[in-house]
Design a protein around this nucleic acid. Structure first.
Lengths: 164, 164
DNA sequence: CAAAATTAAGTGACTTGTCACGGATTTTTT
DNA sequence: AAAAAATCCGTGACAAGTCACTTAATTTTG
């Protein structure tokens, strides 16, 4: 702690360390991406969670909450919590599955499709802009890193403690 | 919507699309990483925010809230909010900067160093495990992608809408 | 077939993260 | 030197995400 190195330099050193640490970078980068998404979706009056649901239901619906959560690699509670609001807005219809009474099937209404279509071109432009910043190969490489990182993140506390 | 493609296949198609979409992957991946971090820090009785603060203050302190936030690329409010609790726990000392009365200088107490040292070896093991999953070059490449993605995320709504 | 185990969904409680705004202090401009 | 602008920090309000627990329904097992 009580080094003789000037404060300014210790700050710079620390900044370089933080910059080179993937674990430090991820939260900030994801937050920035999320904020950008929120700003873009605000134009169409959607939240991120709503947008994801509309898109997935449009492409793969009618669909259960469970399957939606799996598609989005997210906890089902996140979806479950937003549905009443989306239903009240008239975007989706919820109906109990006749074959399996535990499940709820989500389908889009015309208003839901309209809500989707308000946001979709904007989000498509975002992806187009993204592809101007990164080549096809770079994206593939990145996805591969994410695949492997997902595996790493499944390591349990014991796995980590047993390292080395 | 009313395609003739079976539901199962549409789900698979959608899953592949989600899997290949960086914007879809980031939230899940970051969430998984954060959860792993939380589980590891729980052993030492720390939250993520607390851990980051302890580490940065140890390496670069005494330091202001502003500088801490900049190091972590996070909003100052996140740090500001946790400090009273950490001060009450006896880990840090807060004192108003004599040169600039707006600023608060954060420094570690002995108990703060002890709290850091309870978590540090565990987190070091995590980074060691991480380096077994990814080579030095891959990490460099990933950091470069993140650097460029950060630039992309700074694009304003207008920038995005002007695309193409 | 009854009992036990699993699964789907809803909900409470929490963490991590942002933005916006106000009050106090410092710095810059005129 | 006074006025204006900028900066630091605290706080309220919110979004996105998790886990743990409950209830209801279905499947599996004995």
């Amino acid at each position: 702690m009580a080094d003789n190195i000037p404060d300014k330099e210790r700050l710079d050193v620390r900044r370089r360390h933080e910059t080179a640490n993937i674990f430090s970078r991820l939260p900030a980068t994801y937050a920035a991406s999320r904020m950008q998404g929120q700003r873009l979706l605000k134009i169409g009056g959607l939240s991120i969670v709503e947008w994801r649901i509309l898109w997935d239901v449009l492409e793969a619906g009618p669909i259960t909450i469970r399957d939606l959560a799996e598609l989005q690699r997210a906890d089902h509670s996140q979806i479950s919590r937003v549905l009443p609001k989306m239903s009240a807005a008239g975007w989706i219809e919820l109906q109990r599955d006749k074959n399996d009474g535990r499940q709820t099937l989500i389908s889009l209404t015309k208003e839901g499709v309209a809500a989707y279509e308000r946001a979709a071109p904007i989000m498509a432009k975002r992806r187009a802009a993204f592809r101007k910043y990164f080549t096809e190969d770079e994206i593939k490489l990145w996805l591969d890193l994410l695949d492997r990182f997902d595996v790493f993140c499944q390591l349990s506390v014991e796995d980590i403690l047993d390292t080395e």
